[in-house]
Design a protein around this nucleic acid. Structure first.
Length: 305
DNA sequence: ATTTGCCCTGGTGT
DNA sequence: AACACCAGGGCAA
């Protein structure tokens, strides 16, 4: 099927920016499993070609209803974010199934993206329902019920390490029906965040990722080591000297420091702070780090405000 | 209220 | 080839 895009969209950036882990490239197609559907997509200019699902699904999953131009005007507060917007223009948030998203980011702690992909792949192959699509075998992401019935050893065999018990306990909580992700998603941002913190393995950062990537809280602003670095490099003037020194010296990121950086992101970028976070994050990881030398980075900073 | 050490394991670079 | 090194945090002491 063919869909002519009416707004900016960059499929590659959208799938590579660290929000999803179960898409793979085969030739010039992207293949993914979403819920119980296997689908493939490719983009050529303003034409999106796809199969496996209908147009309504594609528009919803890739957030094609979001007005990127308006969002960019709203979050484009300075030269640095504008450069990121330019570099990956058309990057969009994906509306992921909440359960898979929750497990993904519980598994993501202290792991590289490649390792996260592998853990989720093993989990799906071991516990997920088999789905065949155009001659290949795929697996749906296992339900909470299925994972709740798994043993700790089985989960560990998927490479989860100490995350196995977090996933198991979380699966049991969801499976019991006492913690419903859809209901949590209906709460306002702060309340939904508090509710997510009940799950073992879910701290402030994981909660913000789940809120942003699957519960449609576009104001969520996850702060990981990359975002912390970005804020230190380009936005440090927005914080007092004491806090700046604290950020530079403390090893990880305490809850209070997290809360401050997170609050800044939401106050500064506004209702679509999550979009700002994704553009900044992807830009810093893929573009600024490699292609820009220190001189250019200083240049980018000089262009701010 | 904050800080510190530990958690498992696979990917990546040398 | 084998072997450090460490990664997109959370938790408990």
């Amino acid at each position: 099927m063919i869909l002519r895009l009416s707004g900016p969209f960059d499929l590659d950036a959208t799938l590579c920016c660290g929000q999803v882990f179960r898409w793979e490239r085969r030739d010039d197609w992207w293949l993914g499993v979403v819920g119980d559907d296997v689908l493939r997509v490719r983009q050529e200019g303003d034409v999106l070609e796809f199969s496996g699902v209908d147009e309504v699904f594609i528009k919803h999953y890739f957030s094609l209803d979001h007005d990127i131009i308006k969002i960019a005007e709203e979050i484009g507060k300075d030269g640095y974010i504008k450069a990121a917007l330019r570099a990956y223009w058309g990057l969009r948030l994906v509306r992921q199934p909440p359960w898979e998203c929750l497990v993904s980011f519980i598994c993501a702690t202290y792991k590289s993206v490649a390792a996260i992909c592998q853990m989720l792949q093993k989990l799906s192959a071991k516990f997920g329902e088999g789905l065949s699509f155009e001659g290949y075998e795929y697996y749906a992401f296992p339900s909470a019920d299925r994972l709740a019935a798994a043993s700790l050893a089985e989960l560990e065999s998927c490479g989860l390490g100490y995350r196995a018990s977090y996933v198991l306990e979380t699966a049991i909580m969801v499976s019991n029906g006492r913690h419903d992700l859809v209901s949590i998603g209906r709460l306002p941002y702060e309340q939904a965040k508090r509710a997510l913190l009940d799950f073992p393995g879910v701290g402030l950062k994981v909660a913000d990722c789940v809120l942003l990537f699957s519960l449609e809280k576009t104001e969520a602003f996850p702060v990981d080591v990359w975002v912390k670095r970005i804020l230190q490099r380009y936005y440090i003037d927005h914080f007092d000297a004491d806090f700046a020194r604290k950020l530079a010296t403390q090893r990880g990121l305490s809850d209070s420091s997290y809360a401050r950086l997170n609050a800044f992101g939401r106050a500064y970028f506004g209702a679509y702070a999550g979009y700002a976070q994704e553009y900044l994050y992807h830009y810093e990881r893929c573009f600024a780090n490699r292609k820009l030398e220190k001189g250019n980075r200083a240049y980018a900073k000089a262009k701010m405000s």
